[in-house]
Write a protein that binds this DNA or RNA. Structure first.
Lengths: 238, 238
DNA sequence: TAGGGGGTAAACATCCGAGGTCTCTGCAGG
DNA sequence: CCTGCAGAGACCTCGGATGTTTACCCCCTA
């Protein structure tokens, strides 16, 4: 195994064993390199890799630190990974989201704080009548993020965020700028909000299922019909 | 932004844009470095980082290649991330698994091929009467992996595998080597298998829920009771 | 005494070039 | 046709030199 990979494992072990706690600062490059028995160049490769997945955080002129290692931070790195997937696997991701989103919505109906529910309701009215794609994506993203956050499970929240990140969502929205889709999405968002506000987990779950399944169905038909047809579909999105 | 990070984005874009397809070979280090306008050292850091998340695959003496980019490969990298989490967040991961596993089991009851169902059944009998922890983990892992695989959704399959990777599972199993836990797990595994073999998705879903909830409940009580008590718990595991 | 500015030192960022090791490939021999 | 042996190409590792950024302390000023 290359020395760099060994270094990655060593640093990983130092963190898992507790020798390095979240927020701790690593020894300086030269020192750590000598301690791990490799050159600074190789060590830097290891650090850079751990940096990409948000385990380490290097600050020039200061030092290298262990991040908080919170689930949201580490799972955020997954967004980077999801970006690589093309349309052919989007359906698989969406299918997983169809499993998680209803569960999260039901949990939110039970656990969400009243003030957060109020903020969720406020989001519904913030969208203009003829919003841009960017505004749509932003509002849609925030709506679902708030619900996921309301589930009280940070892992679930981060996972949902990664699965339907901005990239994937934008791709979908670009496909349905028709007025019908926007209107239907608004209705469904409102219904989900009502169910959460009424503290009805099962109703909330069902609306969420309907909501995601709508996108899934539309996306499926679009992909099947390929490039040509399918321009008259008007499903709700995301 | 550091030149290395720029390089990471550039390579990422080259892949997403289709300039580099899965399986393609990258230009050699020196050439690519010149093309991206940086030194070989910095480029190597970028490549190493993309390597850690399984986007690139470097083979010494040969060259650097784009991986297949299949979901299972990319999500596998998440296992690395999950390893960093300690007991305090294990429950959150398990809660997500309790959402996904029943869904996957139900899907498996519908879609799994007969021959795979047969192999699943064979797994039940492969465990000795007093298995080692290693054997338990291996068998348990394989059982659930086969079910997840039977769901027909590679994303769901990889996600489940990452969420309850070998590390986490071993940690749990080490806590309950009692005969009672082993026996109960066997019964539940058998019940899940029967439901799948009978092509009863809802029954399979319920058994899976019971199964995972059992671990969750045991783990929760163990964590609450902290170090001392809790040695007489005998739940089914994983 | 409190606040601001400058300077120093520490740490990371980047680059370069040399030598080592591994793998693939083509060719010769059995 | 199979096997073994170089040779070339590509990545691996190292060490040092130089640039940039940041944190921190000291001094000056109000």
């Amino acid at each position: 195994m290359p020395v760099t990979d060994v270094a990655i494992d060593k640093i990983k072990d130092m963190i898992i064993s507790g020798e390095l706690a979240p927020g701790d600062r690593l020894p300086k490059e030269a020192e750590l390199a000598q301690r791990l028995g490799l050159s600074r160049s190789s060590l830097r490769e290891a650090v850079k890799a751990l940096c990409l997945i948000r385990v380490l955080d290097v600050r020039q002129g200061d030092g290298t630190y262990v991040t908080s290692l919170e689930p949201n931070l580490l799972l955020d790195a997954m967004t980077f990974v999801v970006d690589f997937h093309r349309d052919d696997t989007v359906l698989d991701f969406l299918a997983v989201r169809r499993i998680l989103e209803p569960a999260a919505t039901a949990m939110a109906a039970l656990h969400m704080r009243d003030e957060d529910v109020a903020e969720l309701g406020a989001l519904l009215g913030e969208l203009e009548d003829s919003p841009t794609v960017e505004a749509l994506v932003a509002n849609d993203l925030q709506f679902h993020r708030k619900i996921a956050d309301g589930s009280g499970n940070p892992v679930l929240c981060s996972l949902l965020e990664s699965l339907s990140g901005p990239t994937a969502r934008a791709r979908i929205w670009r496909g349905l700028t028709q007025e019908g889709a926007v209107a239907r999405t608004r209705e469904q968002h409102a219904a989900i909000y009502d169910a959460i506000a009424a503290r009805e987990p099962e109703l909330a779950r069902s609306w969420a299922t309907v909501h995601v399944a709508g996108v899934e169905q539309w996306l499926r038909s679009t992909l099947v019909e390929d490039a040509a047809a399918g321009d008259d579909a008007e499903p709700a999105a995301s």
